[in-house]
C-alpha cells in the first residue's frame, strides 16, 4: 500500500480543488419557487375536492328532480325542466371554474 500512502501524502495539502462556488442564493430561490408550486398544487387539490362535493350534491338534486312522477301539472313540469337545466349548467360551471380551465380563463379574458 506504499503507492497509496505516497500519493496521499502529496495530495494531503489540497483541501479544495476548485474555485469556491456560491450557489446559496440560487438554490434558496429555487426552493422558494418549488414551495410556491407545491402550495399552488395543494390549493388546486382542495378546490378540486370542493368542486367534486358541490357537483355530487347538485347531481343528487338533479336525480331527485328527474325522478319526480311525470303525472304532475304542465306548469310544474316546466319549472322542473328549467330547474334541471339550470342545475346542470351550474354543475358544469363549478367544474370549469374550480378546475381553472384554460379555455374558460381565455374566454373570460378575451370575451366570447
Amino acid at each position: 500500500m506504499d503507492e497509496k500512502d505516497d500519493l496521499k501524502e502529496i495530495l494531503n495539502g489540497i483541501d479544495q480543488l476548485h474555485t469556491p462556488v456560491d450557489l446559496e442564493g440560487a438554490i434558496l430561490q429555487k426552493i422558494a419557487e418549488e414551495e410556491r408550486i407545491k402550495a399552488q398544487i395543494a390549493r388546486y387539490r382542495t378546490n378540486g375536492l370542493r368542486a367534486l362535493w358541490a357537483s355530487l350534491v347538485l347531481t343528487v338534486i338533479l336525480a331527485v328532480l328527474f325522478s319526480l312522477p311525470n303525472s304532475i301539472q304542465t306548469a310544474e313540469y316546466a319549472i322542473m325542466t328549467y330547474a334541471s337545466v339550470g342545475v346542470t349548467l351550474l354543475v358544469l360551471f363549478v367544474q370549469l371554474e374550480m378546475g381553472r380551465t384554460n379555455g374558460l380563463n381565455h374566454l373570460k379574458t378575451n370575451g366570447l
Partner: peptide, 10 residues
Amino acid sequence: IRTYQNQAFS
C-alpha cells in the same frame, strides 16, 4: 448550502 456546496461541487 454554505457548509457543503464546495465539496459537493468538487
